[in-house]
């Protein structure tokens, strides 16, 4: 099993690494990344990306490494874990729109809070660390 870290998802899936490729069954791909193989391409939410022939193998698996590279997402592998990062262009566009990027994080009791829950109020977003 391979642990895939994608956005804030952590999933253990069957994946076959082969050189620069990382082959996943379509259902494993969806579980690990949210991207679903559809007739029109790889889709998630409103977004669809036309799947290139070289992203598929004979067994119908999808090359997540090639797909992520197409999206501009860095991939770093170590042992049985593979982490994918954000696309630098998407992140830049998000931030430079000056609309505050949304996020969802737990509090001490494990309750999730999203920045967008606080629309309509002024928010003082304060970062700190115990160190």
């Amino acid at each position: 099993m391979t642990t895939i870290l994608y956005d804030d998802r952590v999933s253990a899936v069957d994946a076959r690494a082969d050189g620069a490729h990382l082959w996943l069954e379509p259902d494993a791909l969806e579980r690990a990344t949210g991207w679903k193989l559809e007739p029109q391409g790889l889709c998630r939410g409103d977004a669809c990306v036309q799947a290139r022939a070289e992203w598929r193998d004979d067994a119908g698996r999808v090359d997540l490494a090639a797909f992520a590279a197409h999206l501009g997402q860095p991939m770093i592998a170590d042992d049985d874990a593979v982490a994918f990062g954000a696309s630098v262009n998407a992140l830049r566009e998000d931030l430079l729109s000056t609309i505050a990027p949304d996020f969802t994080l737990p509090d001490l009791d494990g309750n999730l809070h999203s920045l967008s829950d606080y629309r309509g109020k002024k928010v003082f977003l304060y970062s700190w660390g115990s160190y």
């Binding site: 954000a86 992140l91 931030l95 505050a100 990027p101 629309r119 002024k122 304060y126 970062s127």
Partner: peptide, 20 residues
């Protein structure tokens, strides 16, 4: 990562419309 924060404590002010 999202906001480009490099040290703590740093803060961002966000208005009612979600603008920085």
């Amino acid at each position: 990562e999202l906001y480009g924060m490099t040290n703590v404590p740093q803060a961002v002010w966000i208005d009612e419309q979600g603008r920085i």
